[in-house]
Amino acid sequence: MSTAALAPPNSARSLFSSVIVKKAIMAATGAALYLFVTVHLLGNLQVFLGPEAINTYAAKLKSIPEILWGARLGLLTLVGLHILTTIQLMKINSKARPVAYAKKANSASTAASRTMYLSGPTIAAFIVYHLLHLTVGSAHPQFSETDVYSNIVFGFRVWWVSAAYLVAMALLCTHLSHGVQSMFQSLGFNHPKHTPRIKKFAHAVGLIYFAGFASMPLAALSGFLPPFFERL
């Protein structure tokens, strides 16, 4: 291959064909989705404040349809771009090493980083189920449009639903623990002092978020969260 085949250095082509730009898009969309996950977790933890709190919060979210649908569309775009760039990079990467090693050891990478391509699609599949379960309600045995609290409590009282949810959250949190540190690197930030801190923070985030998400189904299963009518 000759370098003469190169396009002029400052053609706009390089902006979108570049693997680094693609990876940056993945990082930026990841960062936005990470923010969403944070807000979503904090919102849902209101379930522990009792039915009124969370149901009022949910009603507020749904009160202005323009904002609701705008946010939903935005999230969909983010997820779409995140997945699209992933698929593009996966294609490039699978072409880069067609013959596998007979023996390959991993020296430095974390399991989380090596399983992004597995955790990602699983999370995507889970999101679809999660929407049908707790947003659309078609996969929920006793779905109510207004009583989010009961949806959560009854939804999670089915043990295998909770189990699947826990697995999905474990994957999401490992995905985040690599993603958080990786996005800084992809966007060109690496600092001898701060980067180790970011890594620690990323691991902590993974664990804390998992604890947060896991607390809801576990509380529902164990009876710590009573059904709405029992409280009355």
Partner: peptide, 25 residues
């Protein structure tokens, strides 16, 4: 930075996923 990265793709190298095996090797 533009030309060298573009050449990476022309040579069929893969894309970095920040996992750090290179640094260890």
């Amino acid at each position: 930075a533009l030309r060298m990265v573009e050449q990476l793709s022309l040579e069929d190298f893969g894309a970095c996923t920040n996992i750090g095996e290179c640094e260890a090797a």
